[in-house]
Every structure is written in structure tokens, then in C-alpha cells.
Write a protein that binds this DNA or RNA. Structure first.
Lengths: 342, 342
DNA sequence: AACACCGCTGAAAACGTTTTAGGATGTGTT
DNA sequence: AACACATCCTAAAACGTTTTCAGCGGTGTT
């Protein structure tokens, strides 16, 4: 009962252990495992078997130290709670998942100090690149200091147009929403949305206004109803709209929460959705939109796709390419609160 | 205009650069920067100034390779979309944030293969420990293979009682909900909840039943109404309950979504909440509970705290301690759907 | 003036891998 | 039999840091 000579004590196996077990040098073992260099087939098999037996996993630190590449990416988000970051984060993880890349997650909480600190930590760990995820579409200041690795900004673009930003086309989103309401035969359309301080609110409103104008129409009330993003504003604003403009037959809401509030009021005042009036939301937040009564048609911003694209662009940049910024359209997810004609 | 001799080309500065600029050896520079060993005050200052000037950040790979500690933790979640993982994840990040630890995020999507793959990747990067976050409270199989670092399971406990699991006391949560309804003077209480296949549903129901029994009462309908976790089940079940048991004056819902559905039905049938009947939800999902009309009292599971505790216990385990499993109580967040007496 | 001692600094080894350059072995050619 | 040449393998250097140990100069003691 002698102790198996090549089995290491109580530590992860090293390449040395594999080499010893296979009866070759570490250099040969390395080449066999990585499929590089000239190694005889029989030798390669022997090494691979040894590695398998010890369940050897190469030390990524040593490898990274030598090669300069760590196979590691920093993901800097500004609000982990927010529901915008998560799908983006998932998309990015997807883009990496298949390969050999792992993601460092950091939440800066929208705090510049914390952000700087996290960037430091990430750089000292020699990440190959950074993805910066924002929670609103207003441009954000670019990362401070000179960052020695590629950076891709998602959702919230960098204020510096020279940076790579992957964003949502909110103007187009507003257009899509109005086009859908028009396709439903609606002609008296109001727009109830969130805080005017948000670029997203202004962009969507601009897209909506332009599309209505192109159809020879104007917004009910002549301007968007800016307020807050939540249900109570939807309830209050809807009440105003139906009282002041009883002819309204379509409402474009800046968020699904607003849409739910709007639906509630319409129900209270006896307006039938979608027969008498159509309602469309924004964000396609499943939990909110898909469980209302009736279920809410909404604009989906394809955030997961956005994240995936960001991941791919970052890869490209790491490999030396110079990707440019991109803006992606949303799509209409039709549910029961709108009734397309035909 | 000679090139500053100590300024490196176009690469991150190394300790060598700092040492050269300060006119000392790398050994001394290292000691000065880390506050270790005997370094004369004047020398230390000179080194620190040089480091500052070059904005030197030590290469964590090299450091980790030597010390065996990477200051890195793996966070393995099974559903990033789910709203349970996120607060936990935030709490854990908080627990680490202040220190020198960074978090590797991986989403296994509930897929065992992918999970194994991610664990491999994390181990090859020599994480110091692992946190495994589940999305439902049913025990999960422990990580396969022998993991050479400490592991802490959160929310979903490991099926192996020898592992460290940090969980929510769902039985206690059921008790809290019923106690609150009793404190509101309610005596005819129904329980509408999600799928019976979920341990969480069964635990909460058990806690509720026990508490009612201790008060000499029984559940309206004599058993919980198991169904699904969403609003439509809340609507349907509430209709059944008020028709078959018109005496009902309190409803404990297994989720805030169910509670919203229940509220809608009660409104439709003209039952006044909270005067004629009290409703309490579970999860305290802000977006759902805090925007209903009336706003929903709910049980909060303190998930963020759970994550923070998991982080701390992992630290302790890394430092050689042997923490044990812990179960944490929830708390009642009172809103408008219940009206406490007095 | 010789000695011990203290405070500070530097040379070198170590962590585990990849890569380069060169060595050993064997095969075919003259 | 000597040579050129593949083929396969190994020794050693390198990545950037921390740590150990020895050395060096200066100070106080005898």
C-alpha cells in the first residue's frame, strides 16, 4: 500500500504532477495539453490521460501572467437592482459564456468614487476589457484616467463620441409605438410618460410626435404628459386625459407601469380596452405587462441582445478591431390592450 | 527634451518602474508599498510618490500566483433573471465591496452541465471561495467533484447538511403573516399560494396553519389554495373563496402577485380592503406591492441581508473558521391593505 | 580602536505556466 | 561508415510580485 507517487498532497495538481505521472517534461506536457508544438501521438495520449486522472486544471493566474491575456472581463454596472442592467448583463454573459471568458461583476451604485475604485481593482486584476452598463439612456461621463484596455458602454452611452457605445433607439421606439396605434385605426392619440429629465422620455416623445406629424395628426393635448414612471402617475394622467379630451382613442405610455395605471383608470371610467381605446406600454416588463387585465402590448428594447452585442464588440476590440457605436431598434410585442385592424 | 527615463513605454507600470524612479530595489519598493518590513520613512515616502506618479497598480496575478490567495470569489447563480438572485447578489457584493475582494459572476441557468463548466473555470482562476445562489428554497444537490475551496449556499440550501447554507425561515414567514392578520382582528383567514411543488409554498402554508391552530382557528376552506404564483391565480382563487366562504375577512397570499390578483377581485365584488377584509402578500416586491391600490402589506425576506451574511460566512470559512448553516426570519412591511388594531 | 548591534537595503528564490532554442535519437543517403 | 535531416523531447528563461537572508554602513559600548 504505497502512496501513489505522482498524486499531489492536498493541493490542486500542477503541470509538474501531470508531467511526472506521464513520464515527460513539463514543456512536453504543456504542448500536449494545448495542442501546440510537435508531440508524438502516443505521448500526447499519455499526457492527456494523466491530466484527466489528476483532474488537472491549468492555473489561469500563471498563464495570464505570462501571456498578458487573462480571459477576464470587467462588468461595471451602476444599478444592479434596476431591471435594465440585468438583461444586458445576461446578454453579455451569454456572449462570453461559450468561450473561455469569465466576468468580474462590480456595482458602482452610480457613485463616481466607488466606480473609480472598482476600475482600479479590475485593472489590477488585468482584465482584458471593460463593459460599462448604465441604467438610463442619458450620456454618462467616460471612465476617468487612461484605461489600458478596450471599453464598451451599453444602454447609457459615453458622452465622448469617440468611445464605443451600444444603445437603444428610443426615438425609433416612439415611432414604433405610434405606428402600431395608427395601424389599429387610432387617430386621437395621447402620450403619457415619465420624467422629462430623462433622455429616454424626451426621445420617445420626439419619435412619437414626428410620426404623428408625418401622418398629419397631432398629439392629444398637444404635448406629452410628462410625470413619473409609475402607476400612480398613469392613473392620474389618464383621468386628466379622458376628462379633457374625451375623444382620445389611443394612449402611448412611456413605461408598462404607467400603462397599468392608465388601464386601471380606463376601467374605472368604463372605457373598453381595446375596443374603445388602445393602450401601448414600453419596456415589455413581463411581470407588469403580461399580467395586467387586459395584458399590455409593449415595446421591447431587446436589452439582452444589446448586452450580447456589447460582449461581441468588446471581443473584437480586444482582438485589435475598432468597432463603432451602434444603436438598435426595439420591437412591438402585441398583447390584448391593442387590437390591430385586419 | 529627453524622454523621462523611468516612464514605461505603453504598458501598465511595474514595480520595477517604481523602484527605478525611486532609486531603490524592487524588494524595497514592495516593502514600502505594502507597509511590510523595515523601510526608512524617507525611503517609503519616495517610493510612494513614485508609485503615485506612475499610477502604479500591482499586478494581482503575480501577487496571487505567489501568495495562493487571489482575493477573488465565485458567485454561481442559477437564474439571473429571477428577482430573488439579484438582492442576494447585491448583498454579497456589499459584503465584499469594501475590502479587496472581487466577484466572478456566473449564471448556470439551472443547467448542471453549465454549472460544472463554470465551476471548472472559477477553480482554474483560483477563486478563494464560492457562493452558490439558488432561486427557490428547495434543497439542491451540492456541487459535484471535490472543491478545494469553501462553499456557501444561499437561499437554496445544499441537500448535504454538512454544507454551509444560509436560508430564509419560510415557516416563520407564514407565522408572521398570520400573526399580523390576527393582530388586525381577523378570524376567518384564507391562504392562497403558489405551486405545491415548491418547498417555499409548503413551508409558508405549514407556518400559517400552525399559527392558526395555536389560536384555536382553522384555515378558511380547511386547506391552502395551491395554484400558481401569478395574478391570474390570485383573481380566480379569490373569487372562489368569497363565493364559497363569504365570511372570510383575511387573506394571506403566497406572493405579491397573487395579492394583486386578489385585490382586483375583491374590488370587483365590492369588498372593501382593508376595512372589510385584510390582504397580506409575500416577497415585498416593491414594483408590485407598493404600487397596487391599496398598497400591499407584505413579508420581506431580507434577501440582501442574506447575501451579506453569506459573504461574511464565506470570508470566515476562507480564513479557516467553520461557520454553520443559518436561517433568517423575514419581517412584515405594513402598507395599506391591512389595518392593525390600536 | 575594536567590537557588537541595529536599521536599512538588495540579491535571489519562489509561485506555475508557456515558449524558444537547442539536444538526442533514429532514418535515409552517399 | 559518415553525413544530412526529421522528429520528438527537454532545459531554461520569462511573466511581476513577495519574502527570506545576507550584507552594509553607522552608532554606541568597552
Amino acid at each position: 500500500m504505497t502512496t501513489e507517487s505522482a498524486v499531489p498532497a492536498n493541493r490542486p495538481p500542477r503541470l509538474t504532477d501531470v508531467a511526472r505521472l506521464a513520464g515527460v517534461s513539463v514543456a512536453t506536457a504543456s504542448k500536449a495539453i494545448n495542442g501546440r508544438g510537435e508531440v508524438r501521438a502516443a505521448t500526447r495520449v499519455r499526457v492527456l490521460e494523466a491530466a484527466e486522472l489528476l483532474s488537472f486544471a491549468p492555473n489561469a493566474l500563471a498563464r495570464g501572467l505570462l501571456s498578458g491575456r487573462t480571459g477576464t472581463v470587467g462588468l461595471l454596472t451602476s444599478d444592479l437592482e434596476g431591471r435594465f442592467s440585468i438583461p444586458i448583463l445576461m446578454g453579455a454573459e451569454d456572449a462570453f459564456g461559450a468561450g473561455q471568458v469569465s466576468v468580474f461583476l462590480c456595482d458602482a451604485r452610480g457613485d463616481a468614487i466607488r466606480e473609480k475604485h472598482h476600475v482600479q481593482a479590475l485593472l489590477s486584476r488585468r482584465v482584458d476589457g471593460l463593459i460599462v452598463v448604465g441604467s438610463r439612456t442619458d450620456p454618462r461621463p467616460p471612465l476617468a484616467g487612461n484605461i489600458p484596455v478596450p471599453v464598451v458602454y451599453v444602454y447609457a452611452p459615453s458622452a465622448d463620441p469617440a468611445d464605443i457605445s451600444i444603445t437603444v433607439d428610443n426615438v425609433g421606439g416612439g415611432r414604433l409605438a405610434i405606428e402600431h396605434l395608427l395601424a389599429c385605426g387610432r387617430r386621437s392619440i395621447a402620450h403619457i410618460t415619465g420624467e422629462a429629465g430623462f433622455q429616454a422620455a424626451r426621445d420617445r416623445a420626439a419619435g412619437a410626435a414626428a410620426t404623428l406629424a408625418a401622418a398629419g395628426l397631432s398629439m392629444v393635448g398637444d404635448r406629452p404628459y410628462f410625470g413619473s414612471w409609475d402607476e400612480s402617475w398613469g392613473r392620474a394622467a389618464a383621468r386628466m386625459v379622458v376628462e379633457q379630451h374625451p375623444e382620445v382613442d389611443g394612449i402611448f405610455c412611456g413605461s408598462d407601469q404607467i400603462a397599468r395605471g392608465v388601464l386601471e383608470t380606463l376601467r374605472d371610467v368604463g372605457r373598453d380596452v381595446p375596443r374603445a381605446i388602445s393602450v401601448i406600454g414600453f419596456d415589455n416588463w413581463e411581470a407588469i405587462a403580461a399580467h395586467a387585465r387586459p395584458r399590455v402590448t409593449s415595446i421591447d428594447m431587446n436589452l439582452k441582445h444589446l448586452g450580447a452585442v456589447a460582449g461581441k464588440r468588446l471581443f473584437a476590440a480586444i482582438d485589435g478591431a475598432v468597432p463603432s457605436s451602434e444603436e438598435f431598434p426595439g420591437r412591438v410585442v402585441i398583447r390584448e390592450s391593442t387590437l390591430p385592424i385586419g
